[in-house]
Simulated assay, not measured.
Amino acid sequence: MLFAPTFYILIQMIWRQVISVGDTVVDATCGNGHDTAILAKLALGENNEGVVHGFDLQSSAIEKTSSLLDKELSTNQRKRVYLHHTCHSKLGQVIKEKNFVSVVAFNLGYLPGGEKGITTASNTTVEALMCATSLVKHGGIITLVSYIGHPGGRDEYEAVRDFATRLASDKWICSHWELLNRPLCPRLLVLLKK
């Protein structure tokens, strides 16, 4: 990953500051499962107290994530991770409890190593973000990595940035990072619920 030295390390640092063992966390776009595994290790701990929900529309992503989790987590930890083969826009239909989740993570675009024509889309991502804002508890965050170099990627990024811009400033702190000398690198948005 080109952005690994900066964004990926930064995202993990942010997650570590927000997630406590026993928390509920969500990977809204499982992909190959790397974020799901990290979120699980942070939320479940050694006593397997937390819960992790992972979502992906592609069956191959769910299979890859499941396989990685089987390798990375203990048997008891693995039982606390629920993978949902459905669109991230269905977050609110799966997770009903409001103001309960510590982190909702989005990694937008296409499945790395998968078919590049299958991508997340502005309309479903904004719908997922609307759900995520009601699920996240006070002090919780939504992180979004938005790739702009593929067809539709810039439009999706602009849609999520516009969504974040409209969130009430008395309830949310929204930030945006980009690498200034790499114009096609992904953008990172972090939305903190006060």
Rank of each mutant, 00 (worst) to 15 (best):
H53F: 15
T36M: 00
K98F: 00
I9F: 01
G22W: 04
L73V: 08
Y82S: 05
E158M: 10
D27M: 03
Q93V: 01
G113W: 02
K194W: 01
S60V: 13
H34D: 05
K193F: 00
K96I: 12
W177S: 14
E156S: 05
I118H: 07
T125M: 07
F163H: 10
G149R: 08
V81A: 08
K41V: 04
L192T: 13
Q93H: 09
I141P: 08
M13A: 14
R80Y: 00
L189N: 13
G117Y: 00
R78H: 11
T75F: 04
G149E: 13
T6Q: 10
V26R: 08
G22S: 07
D23A: 10
L68F: 03
A121Y: 03
T24C: 10
N32C: 03
H53L: 03
K41T: 09
L10I: 00
Y157C: 10
T6H: 12
A168P: 15
I141F: 00
T86E: 08
F106D: 14
A132L: 02
K79G: 00
L129W: 05
A61H: 01
K171M: 05
H34V: 03
Y157S: 03
Y82I: 11
T29Y: 07
K71T: 14
S102K: 05
I141G: 07
L108D: 09
L108T: 07
K79Y: 00
N181K: 11
H34T: 01
S59Y: 06
Y110M: 06
G109F: 00
V136W: 05
T75G: 01
I14N: 03
T133A: 02
Y82F: 13
S59P: 08
A168G: 04
I38P: 00
F7I: 15
R78V: 09
R161K: 13
N181A: 06
A121C: 07
K171Q: 15
S175N: 13
A168Q: 14
S67M: 08
G109K: 07
I62V: 15
S134H: 10
N47M: 06
Q12A: 05
V104Q: 10
S175H: 02
T133L: 04
A40N: 11
L2I: 14
C131G: 04
G33T: 02
G152W: 02
L42Q: 13
I173Q: 13
F106K: 08
P183L: 05
L39G: 01
L73T: 09
H53P: 12
D35A: 06
K137H: 09
V81K: 03
N32M: 04
F100V: 02
T24I: 09
D56F: 01
E178Y: 07
E72W: 00
E63T: 09
D27Y: 01
N76A: 13
L188K: 10
L184A: 13
T119A: 07
S74R: 06
Y147H: 11
M1H: 09
L73W: 04
H85C: 10
G45S: 08
T65D: 09
L191I: 15
R161P: 01
W15Y: 10
H150K: 05
N76Y: 00
C87S: 15
H150L: 06
G109D: 13
L39V: 06
Y157P: 05
F163A: 07
L129H: 07
